[in-house]
Design a protein around this nucleic acid. Structure first.
Length: 444
DNA sequence: TTAGGGTTAG
């Protein structure tokens, strides 16, 4: 019976997609003689949920070409994919499509739209969707609060949090992740502690490792390293030592070698030090120019085989997302991009810019450091943005890791020189650069 | 057989 075949195939695809074996799922999907909307959805959502949002969007376009009508589940999956890659134009198209279809924007779709718009850098659109949702629940509020948080609108996030209780909605554990990370971006230490205690004592929400992560990050960035250290020592729920990693990151930021070494020794004694621990200690050494220390850590790292996620920057131009990888020469417009890069460096020099060579964590000469900074992928994406968009328009760039301080400074200055607004999303948050200044206030 | 929100680290 063909129908049974369709459902059982889809069930198998679901199984493979759930465990993240998308290639196996895709083989089954491609082999199906007939597909219904659910089989498409399972595959599209599988990509979206497992870090392959671009493939999710490509498959969605194929679905439309095959004249298969998407339903609400399809839209939820593709909106999430748009948010992940920062595909604002595609996201807007989907929003329009929803208007023409029979689907009404309920709390589920509304949440997905808010999430998409805020991750694509358009907080105004996110807020408009939020205001238009009639049956708002806690999840809708959470999406908007997190949106404000990643854009550095701390006060707005806190206002919405207060509004939630006024309208009779209870905050969830994710609400607190949102507002605590908002506090971290603004350095609001006492407010953060107050909210953390409110969550435990008044709302009866047991803090999870994620909440401790927010607190350690908040305290660590604000320079309260000992306070953060005590907090981590006092908790036993850190199963994969992320909190220690956060704390070591803060030691690097504040160039605190002593505490960094102390922590690594402590972890080593407990058998908790892993390859990531040594990467972080190596970075702490590098931040103070202790190249012997760096060399020692590199040797340890080599033995334990550290893997670092490769950096990638992207930009959406004319509905297409262009990706840049380190030292990338593969882009068809490579020549023009490098020409623009040269031009940018001339502008920067003329404005008295000196590159921040301490952003380079290797022991190489200063001239070489300058050269290695010049081709950082954020700058390649920015150069491409400058040559392929109209003057005065906003440029949006996305990076999968944190932006380095040198690129941050360059992007700020280029915004001033070209009179362009440049919006950048990195691992942690959004940076809105206008006329030489950034919304993060250089605190990130 | 699908279905909204998630911090921290390299």
């Amino acid at each position: 019976m063909p129908e049974t075949n369709l459902v059982s195939f889809t069930a198998m695809i679901t199984g493979y997609a759930k465990i993240g074996d998308l290639d196996e799922a895709r083989m089954l999907f491609d082999g199906m003689k007939e597909r219904d909307v659910v089989s498409w959805n399972v595959m599209i959502d599988g990509y979206a949920q497992h870090g392959r949002p671009n493939e999710s969007l490509i498959l969605f376009r194929q679905m439309l070409k095959a004249r298969m009508k998407p339903n609400e589940a399809t839209m939820l999956a593709v909106l999430s994919a748009c948010g992940q890659v920062g595909a604002l134009e595609s996201g807007k198209w989907i929003h329009l499509y929803l208007g023409y279809s029979s689907m009404s924007i309920n709390a589920h779709l509304g949440t997905a739209l808010i999430d998409m718009y805020s991750k694509c850098g358009s907080l105004e659109d996110a807020r408009m969707v939020f205001d238009g949702i009639k049956d708002k629940d806690s999840v809708v509020y959470n999406a908007m609060i997190v949106g404000y948080a990643i854009h550095g609108f701390t006060q707005e996030a806190l206002n919405l949090f207060m509004e939630m209780s006024q309208v009779g909605l209870h905050p969830t554990d994710i609400t607190f992740i949102g507002i605590l990370s908002a506090c971290a971006h603004a350095g609001l230490v006492s407010e953060g502690w107050a909210l953390f205690n409110l969550m435990k004592d008044d709302c009866g929400i047991q803090p999870k490792v994620e909440h401790y992560g927010c607190m350690v990050n908040l305290l660590g960035r604000a320079g309260k390293l000992e306070e953060a250290y005590d907090l981590v020592k006092g908790t036993s729920i850190d199963t994969d030592s992320v909190l220690w990693g956060t704390l070591l990151g803060a030691c690097r930021l504040h160039k605190n070698v002593d505490l960094g070494e102390q922590i690594v020794e402590f972890l080593h004694g407990l058998g908790l030090a892993n390859s990531g621990t040594y990467v972080l200690l190596s970075n702490i050494y590098a931040s103070t120019g202790n190249w012997d220390g760096v060399a020692r850590m590199r040797a340890v790292m080599k033995q334990s085989g550290v893997q670092k996620e490769p950096g990638c920057s992207s930009i959406e131009v004319n509905n297409k997302v262009h990706e840049f990888l380190a030292g990338d020469m593969k882009h068809p417009k490579s020549k023009e991009i490098y020409e623009m890069l040269k031009q940018m460096n001339k502008w920067l020099k003329a404005h008295g810019y000196t590159s921040q060579t301490d952003a380079v964590l290797h022991n190489i000469g200063d001239a070489e450091k300058e050269r290695s900074l010049e081709v950082h992928i954020e700058k390649l994406a920015l150069a491409f943005g400058l040559i392929s968009t109209k003057p005065r328009t906003t440029i949006k760039i996305f990076k999968n890791l944190r932006v380095c301080p040198d690129c941050h400074a360059v992007i700020k200055l280029i915004s001033k020189i070209t009179g362009r607004k440049i919006v950048m999303r990195d691992r942690n948050r959004f940076h809105h650069c206008v006329d030489g200044l950034c919304s993060c206030g250089d605190y990130w």
